[in-house]
Design a protein around this nucleic acid. Structure first.
Lengths: 353, 353
DNA sequence: CTGTTAGCGCTTTCAA
DNA sequence: TTGAAAGCGCTAACAG
């Protein structure tokens, strides 16, 4: 007897009941082998292009597999391979509203670019809610996890590291073993933006910042203060307690209502650029005449307003690309992977400044 | 000898080299069992809360597992269980720009709501590019796939069905075996919007529609034509060849530039609501005085413009919820799952109309 | 050049 | 109440 007709012994029957597709049980490698009168090995080799098989046999195996609609069981392959080529994706911010992060153009871009880069390298991305809990990912065979914008001392990072899942995040995880990072140079970005506004004539530039403990936002505040100190400028900081267009627009109005009036505005809290312009208009301020405006934003509408709005792009697509490159190198590389990569932000100057 | 110390025989050594976490090989069930002086069976039962074990033994097993940092191998469990609790997510539109769909507030909401609902039911969502190819998902153990807004006769749907992966999509896949659907009642939505504009006084309502073969867009056009015929109104259709704020704003200007001037505007192509208002303003038209505006949009900025913009919401969160409910029922249910669900859209009337 | 066999790590009969 | 053994579907080492 070459291949057992019956499972033999006393094991349970084949699981996987209703989860399989439409009709009947799925075709397995052994089914193809039996049908073609070959062994599993031969068919496997034929299909994977490995081993040394006669062209005739290889073709017969392939043809039979095609005819029977054979599709290899991905889970079995993963078990054999020892990894699932699955990457978790989670953001640290927005833990209160765990699924709103895609409303942010920045995270929308970062997420899609990450998925794209991952897939290009043969990894698939699974989406997790912001501030995800163990129970939501414990059952997933994650090879690694990407933690976008963790908050200060994020428990997410701790949990993944404790579970021995390699973490890819921002610079706040630098020097954690098992963690790698990609980040944008916040200090340089802030200086660049403030210098730009100063060159255009602004002497009192107000900062509108979300009240968040993300590393980027902490560094922005520090850099702004530092810059103000270095230029003898007054600190004009408005913290936005909540995310969303409404709260940020309100904060912009408050910031611009200060006396004496600011003549520069650096909006780091995400908001629709047209609405930032509307807020200035509501106060009767001309842009850029009375106040020059720079927004940290990936929102494409910035280019179509009147005047178009100068934006500081955090380059989510490049962050994603570098992050995945790092990940692949760390997971598959020969070692020698750098612990992290620092990118510079990209100031796209338009008429609003 | 109770447990083999060595793998015995001549099989290969344990795979999974660099993919495992930071230090050393992962702790397996057998390691815990050996350490606790128990069998795999007992430890497994203890950890899963199954079987009849003495509380003392159960506790000992749990304690040992905790101490050793044991984490069950998800892939092995999946193989055993016969399914991976993984769902593919792919959109049919935007195949030319496969990763831009998250820039659309509608898809951003739909995607996050789908991931949320799926996870709540114990399924994880993996992100695929728009118009994804076989090779990108063939290696993934997908229990099902969600195809958001397929184009006409979408090859995506064919491919998944051919691979015997259950498809959850919109009404265009109705009566395909193995496919289920959730959709929004486009006809009612269009009538409702046009009736609303008519009640407010609009007699010439122009339609700005993307040039797409998505079912929703096809039905919108048909419903608009039908409504115009029924009301003796002239058809004023502007097709937008490309997605994006720029092209749509341009199309809006063209639509409003027609002679005699439209006094109603129904923008189905996605654009930032403030930019639609800007387009009207550029033509010197007052909203809602000269032209009443309704936008199909999930963009939160619509509520903060001046005037706030009336929107027609396609209720992505509810679509996601119903879709996942259907999916769970079809995959795990006792049968009796309906083939599809039809939702009505939600007109949120604001000052622009 | 092809087939037999072991085993990835887990859950689950069934026997003790 | 506990443990041994089978096997989910696949790949690879080795024997023929």
């Amino acid at each position: 007897m070459t291949t057992r007709e019956q499972p033999g012994g006393h094991a349970g029957k084949r699981p996987g009941g209703p989860a399989t597709g439409a009709a009947g049980p799925r075709v397995r490698l052994v089914d193809v082998a039996r049908e073609a009168g070959l062994s599993k090995t031969t068919v496997s080799a034929a299909l994977n292009g490995t081993g040394r098989l006669s062209p005739a046999v290889r073709e017969r195996a392939r043809e039979t597999a095609r005819r029977m609609g054979y599709r290899p069981n991905a889970t079995a392959r993963q078990l054999r391979a020892g990894r699932a080529r699955l990457i978790g994706y989670v953001v640290g911010e927005f833990a209160g509203e765990p699924w709103t992060y895609l409303d942010s153009p920045y995270f929308a871009r970062l997420t899609s670019a990450t998925a794209a880069a991952a897939l290009r390298h043969g990894y698939a991305l699974v989406m997790l809610p912001a501030g995800s809990l163990q129970r939501e990912w414990a059952e997933l065979p994650l090879d690694a996890v990407i933690v976008a914008d963790p908050v200060e001392d994020d428990p997410l990072v701790e949990d993944f590291l404790a579970a021995r899942i390699p973490v890819f995040s921002d610079a706040s995880v630098a020097d954690r073993p098992g963690a790698h990072w990609v980040d944008v140079d916040a200090d340089a970005a802030v200086r660049g933006s403030l210098d730009h506004l100063r060159e255009r004539g602004s002497r009192r530039t107000a900062l509108v910042l979300p009240d968040s403990t993300t590393r980027f936002h902490r560094e922005v505040l520090a850099a702004y203060r530092d810059w103000c100190a270095g230029h003898g400028a007054e600190e004009l900081v408005t913290l936005v307690p909540e995310i969303g267009n409404g709260p940020v627009a309100g904060a912009v109005e408050r910031a611009l209502g200060a006396e004496p009036r600011p003549d520069g505005l650096f909006v780091v809290a995400e908001a629709s650029p047209p609405l930032v312009l509307d807020a200035a208009r509501r106060l009767g301020l001309a842009v850029p005449g009375d106040v020059r405006v720079v927004c940290v934003s990936e929102d494409s509408s910035a280019a179509y307003t009147d005047p178009p709005v100068t934006t500081l792009s955090l380059r989510p697509a490049d962050i994603a690309e570098e992050g995945i490159a790092l990940l692949v190198s760390a997971l598959e590389g020969e070692g020698g992977t750098p612990p992290g990569v620092l990118l510079s932000a990209d100031l796209q100057v338009r008429a609003s400044s």
